[in-house]
């Protein structure tokens, strides 16, 4: 399995190859479409990320120190972002997730609204996932 920085570098490369913002959003929405459907029963209040303008759900389960993530959002853009996070983080060792320092959202200069708004953000999503990672131990 590739490491988080390796997958992130691949994403940065992929997005940089796209010509304009429309294509980048196209790709982002495609990524969201490819996200496995999240069962409705997992969309609980506990799994809802607090402090987002759109609804974002993360359900996590821990298997031998690795965190597996299912996710969804009612916004197609955020669903794309969520899909990126799932590809980056799901199945990774929880200690790697706890220490992950994602830079791609700033590096790409896209989705500035995601990092600058207090009410919506990768920061809130990452905090939510890191909290789950912190309780995920190797058996």
């Amino acid at each position: 399995m590739k490491t988080i920085p390796e997958i992130e570098a691949q994403f940065i490369d992929d997005f940089n190859q796209l010509e304009n913002w429309e294509e980048k959003y196209d790709y982002l929405i495609e990524l969201g479409d490819s996200l496995p459907e999240m069962p409705a029963e997992l969309k609980t209040a506990d799994n809802l990320v607090k402090g987002c303008q759109s609804s974002v759900w993360f359900a996590t389960r821990c298997e031998d120190g690795r965190l597996f993530i299912e996710a969804d959002s009612d916004s197609l853009i955020i669903k794309g972002i969520v899909a990126i996070l799932v590809q980056l983080l799901s199945g990774q060792p929880s200690s790697d997730i706890a220490h992950a320092d994602l830079t791609m959202f700033e590096t790409l200069g896209l989705w500035r609204h995601l990092s600058s708004q207090r009410s919506n953000g990768v920061t809130a999503m990452m905090a939510h996932l890191k909290q789950s990672a912190a309780t995920c131990q190797i058996n």
Binding site: W21, Y25, S54, L76, I77, I78, H113
Partner: peptide, 21 residues
């Protein structure tokens, strides 16, 4: 079919400032 947040974000790319939520 287009969430308000998505509409706001995409309109911004055309230089159009609206509020969503």
């Amino acid at each position: 079919g287009i969430q308000h947040y998505d509409m706001g974000v995409l309109l911004d790319n055309y230089g159009i400032a609206v509020r969503t939520g």
